[in-house]
Design a protein around this nucleic acid. Sequence first.
DNA 1: AACATGTGTAAGTATTTACTTGCAAAGATA
DNA 2: TATCTTTGCAAGTAAATACTTACACATGTT
Lengths: 197, 197
Amino acid sequence: MLRKSTDIRQEEIKKAVLDIIHREGLKNVSTKNLAKKVGISEGTIFRHFQSKNDIMMGIIDDVSTGFVEKLRKIAFSEKSPPERLFDLLCTTVTYLVENKGITILLFSEASYDNDKKMLEKLNYIFNSQKEFAAMIVSDGIASGVWDKSVSPDDVASLYMGIPITLNIEMILMGEKFRYRNFCNRMNDLLIKLLNEK
Amino acid sequence: MLRKSTDIRQEEIKKAVLDIIHREGLKNVSTKNLAKKVGISEGTIFRHFQSKNDIMMGIIDDVSTGFVEKLRKIAFSEKSPPERLFDLLCTTVTYLVENKGITILLFSEASYDNDKKMLEKLNYIFNSQKEFAAMIVSDGIASGVWDKSVSPDDVASLYMGIPITLNIEMILMGEKFRYRNFCNRMNDLLIKLLNEK
DNA sequence: AACATGTGTAAGTATTTACTTGCAAAGATA
DNA sequence: TATCTTTGCAAGTAAATACTTACACATGTT
């Protein structure tokens, strides 16, 4: 009987959730399957989490504190707007590719239930990214490097499509999807769009 | 005891699925809830469909034969590439706004289960749109109206982000999302990107 | 009228789900 | 050593799920 602290078990359980989502689909994230993957009994899960929903919330909170804060630092860094936009995009793409389960979770959880708390958290994650992009574009226009006739909000909408499309392609195509230079290629398009004619 | 033909009941049931998804979330699409919404008994559902999965498949097939074929006509029409691109985008946006349940279904179903048949159908719907966009861009470049230095495939990837972002925003923001001129604004960005410097 | 067929329901089924309970024992603290 | 807290498990629970069965009756055809 191997005993581990709640902190460690919580991490193991959250990791198992993402693993199951990525390999077997969200449908198979049951407490029974989860326990099997971690190598503990089903009851033990409820020793470390109050409910299954709490596990999901925990994962989403991890995204907020980890991923979103990382992007925030990039958005507010001292680099030039083009550099910041590139960093923002590539960091996002890398994160999504390396955390495939999370992307599906964020996606589906929003539409699976109509849970208000969950939607708020997801909204925060989504809108933070969008605001970061809009801010960088605004800065670029203000500093004179980019065309002032484009709307930062519209570009931010278009920008958000990039990571989301990546998500969908990863879900649909699985391993076949080619990530190589994906962020570079998309960044080139954005830059062309932002430059003056 | 009101009796209706299988054809009609199937439509009613499929419509109820989308309605439930939009209002209560995918989680609440149970055969029990479905029967209640349609106003029939649970058993009657299985008189008209072999399984719940068949209902979902039916809806997705409807999207393929209806929506995708409509887009195909636009993509292969005699209009100019800029007109075709605009039509493609706006038709898609309109469809998504008017069929909110479908967008969530397409999204989540892909990640909910790992059903191969389902993934193939979703892949078809996704890739058709992407190919239509890539083709129109190619035509535009070939005919000299657009910059030949951009990659049609990359633009198609970026293009696909537009309807998908719209999806997400509709899920997250609900009624608050402003669709007004959304396709025009996005189209303007694409055109700016495609024009020569 | 007789019959076949199509549409309906009520009341089941087995299975799965998230979660609980009672108790054992490991590890820390005294 | 004795005690307390934490972590574990086996065996439950009630509720929900997709789906079935047996039978009723409406409708169209002969």
